[in-house]
Nucleic acid binder design. Structure first.
Lengths: 204, 204
DNA sequence: GCAAGGTATGAATCGTGATTCACTTCTTGA
DNA sequence: TCAAGAAGTGAATCACGATTCATACCTTGC
C-alpha cells in the first residue's frame, strides 16, 4: 500500500470531473444533446476521451447528472420567484412567467431539458424534472384549494397540465413577440386554475 | 421495352407496400418506435429487409408515413367528436374527452405519437400532428371568441397550451382511475378557456 | 421461348459514436 | 530513489441497426 491519494490530489481529480460536467453542460446549452458526443465533451474539458470514463461509468450517467443539475437550477429559480409574499394566483403567475422567460432566454437549453430526444436513462431525469416543476405548482395550488381562494380541483392534475401547457407553448415555434406570448400564457394559466364564470358558461 | 407492369402487378406491389406499413404500425402500437427496426418490420410484413427499401427510400420516410396516417386518424376522431351541434365549451369538452379516452386506450401508441424520441424526420410529422390537433381546437376557440361565448384570448396560444396540457397529463403516469383523470382534465381545459371569476380572483 | 427489365432476397457492408485497454505519466509512502 | 498503484491517454475495438447490392426470380411483350 504505497499510494493513497492526498486531499490535494483528490481535489485535482474533482476539478477534472467538474470540468467535464461543465463542458457537457456547455455543449448542451449551445447545441443540444445531439452535438454532445463524448469526444466533444472530452475536447471541451481538455482531457482525453478515456478520461471521461474514469469519472463516469457511461455517457448516459454523465448527462443524467448534467440534466439533474441544470434542471434543478431552473426549478429553483421558479420556486424562488413563487416564494414572494402574494396571493396564490399571483404566485402562480410569477412562477409561470419566470419559467417562460428563462426558457425563452435559453431556448436551446429549454428545448434540451423539455423536449429533445435523449437516452432512456437521461429521459428518466427529465421526468423527475417535470415532476419537480409540477410539484412546485402543486403545493401552491393545494394551499389555494384549502383556503378557498381557488375552486375545488385535483391540484396534481392541474399542476401537471400547467407544466405541459407551458412546455408546449414554449417549445412550439411562435410568431408573436415574447411579451405578448408570455402574457397570453400567463392568462391561460390563471384562467385554468380559477373558477369559470357562470356568465360565460351559459352564454353560448 | 419488353416489360411494363400491368394493373394486376401494380396492385400486388401496392399490397406489399401496404403490408409493410401495417407491420410498422403494429410494431409501433405494441412496442413503440424503439422496437421497430427495419428487420422487424420486414419480418412482420413477411418480406426481406431489402424489400422495404424497394418501397421506401429510408426508415425515416416509412415511419413518417406511418405517423402521418396514425395521427391523422386520431385527429379525425377528435374533429368528428367536436362536430356535434353544441356550444363551443361543450364541443371543446367533447374533443378533450375523445382525445383523452383514445390515448388512454392505446397508451403505447399515444406515447409514440406524442412523446417518444424519434428520428428528426419523424419528429417533423409529430409537429404536424400536434399542430393539427391545436388547429382543431383553435377553430372552435376562434368561433367562441368571435361570438362572445368565450372571453378575449389568443386562440392559437390557448389551443397549443391545451394540446400540451392534455399530452402531458396523458403521458405522465397517474395514480387516479381513468374516469377521475379524464374528468379532472376536462374541467381543467374548460376553466382554461372561460373567464376567471372575480369572486375567486380577489378572495385570497 | 426468350430478352428486357422489374421485383425480391438477405448476407455483407457501412457509418457512427460509445466504450475499452495497453500503455504512459504522475503520486505517494517507505 | 523506488515500487505500487492511481490517473490520463487516444487509437483501436465494438455494437448496432440502417442501408446496399450481387444474385435469383418474375412478368411482360414480342
Amino acid at each position: 500500500m504505497a499510494y493513497r491519494p492526498t486531499a490535494r490530489t483528490e481535489a485535482r481529480r474533482a476539478e477534472v470531473r467538474d470540468r467535464i460536467v461543465r463542458a457537457a453542460f456547455e455543449l448542451i446549452r449551445r447545441g443540444g444533446y445531439r452535438e454532445a458526443s463524448v469526444a466533444a465533451v472530452a475536447a471541451g474539458a481538455g482531457v482525453a476521451t478515456g478520461t471521461v470514463y474514469r469519472h463516469f461509468p457511461s455517457k448516459a450517467e454523465l448527462f443524467a447528472e448534467v440534466f439533474r443539475v441544470a434542471s434543478q437550477h431552473e426549478v429553483d429559480a421558479v420556486a424562488e420567484a413563487m416564494a414572494a409574499p402574494a396571493s396564490v394566483s399571483d404566485r402562480i403567475a410569477l412562477g409561470v412567467e419566470t419559467f417562460a422567460r428563462r426558457a425563452l432566454r435559453g431556448r436551446r437549453l429549454a428545448w434540451a431539458l423539455l423536449a429533445e430526444p435523449v437516452d432512456p436513462a437521461v429521459e428518466e431525469e427529465r421526468l423527475v424534472f417535470r415532476r419537480a416543476y409540477a410539484e412546485v405548482f402543486a403545493s401552491s395550488l393545494r394551499e389555494g384549494v384549502l383556503d378557498g381562494s381557488l375552486p375545488p380541483q385535483d391540484p396534481d392534475v392541474t399542476a401537471v397540465a400547467l407544466v405541459g401547457a407551458i412546455g408546449e407553448v414554449l417549445t412550439q415555434p411562435h410568431s408573436s413577440d415574447e411579451q405578448a406570448l408570455v402574457a397570453s400564457l400567463v392568462r391561460f394559466c390563471l384562467r385554468s386554475i380559477t373558477e369559470e364564470s357562470d356568465v360565460h358558461r351559459h352564454a353560448a
